[in-house]
């Protein structure tokens, strides 16, 4: 189960997204989901913003206002220990749209999803967190974050990246300097939830073109476990 195969596993979990609004143009631009079909259903004109219904194989999975959906396209970025996280509205979207394979994610959207996972690990405070930076030099701007995460929690943190920078020693953090293509082309995070499986989460995205990613995040403990086991077995 390498990263490519994980992406295709998730691709097979199809969802449908129906946008209900009075204007067909509301099928949001940039909201391109590869394993979900997006359809539009008309609402009578009245000036209300409309909403989206996400359905999976069990039917209704959730509904959310179009205003919130738009917020997702340009999400706010918080630091991992920001209290605003606990109430951040777009967080509901992460839950609604997990296991959706997004054909087009930019760095900002990935960073928002990354912060959601880091925040979860920070709050739980124990367990294993694996983070792929593509290149270790990207870690340079994040050393402050990770030093605090390592020092103030009981997390066992593993950081992966191409070997282009020598990071300082960070408490409770193991650095895996790699030379393979896979580590260089995927942005990923996986957190096992400590001893609480319901807190498990992961993000996996491939950089298809510079700054352009396709990938997914998930709260499915089985997918998280497959990813973490693969990483442990392949890059330790």
């Amino acid at each position: 189960m390498n990263f490519d195969r994980l992406l295709s596993t998730v691709e097979r979990r199809r969802k449908t997204i129906a946008v209900y609004s009075s204007d067909a143009d509301d099928v949001a631009d940039g909201f391109e989901v590869r394993n979900a079909s997006v359809e539009h259903r008309r609402l009578p004109d009245a000036g209300s913003a409309g909403f989206a219904v996400v359905r999976d194989r069990d039917g209704f999975a959730g509904a959310i206002g179009l205003g919130e959906l738009e917020e997702f396209v340009e999400p706010p970025i918080y630091s991992p220990w920001d209290e605003a996280f606990l109430t951040a509205e777009y967080r509901t979207l992460f839950e609604l749209l997990d296991d959706s394979l997004f054909a087009s994610l930019d760095r900002r959207q990935l960073l928002a999803a990354t912060r959601e996972i880091e925040n979860r690990a920070w709050r739980v405070g124990r367990g294993t967190l694996q983070v792929g930076f593509q290149r270790l030099s990207i870690l340079e701007t994040q050393v402050g974050f990770y030093a605090r995460l390592g020092a103030e929690t009981a997390l066992d943190v593993h950081v992966y990246g191409r070997d282009d920078w020598d990071p300082p020693v960070i408490p409770n953090t193991t650095v895996h300097a790699e030379s393979g293509d896979e580590i260089g082309s995927f942005w990923f995070l996986a957190f096992d939830g400590g001893d609480d499986e319901t807190q498990a989460c992961a993000l996996l995205a491939r950089e298809r073109a510079p700054g352009e990613f396709s990938g997914f995040w998930t709260y499915d403990p089985q997918i998280v476990d497959e990813m973490m086991t693969y990483l442990r077995n392949t890059y330790d």
């Binding site: 209900y20 209300s48 909403f51 989206a52 219904v53 209704f60 509904a63 206002g65």
Partner: peptide, 9 residues
Amino acid sequence: DVVTGWIRT
């Protein structure tokens, strides 16, 4: 689905 989603909007 619609009644649920719309009221929530």
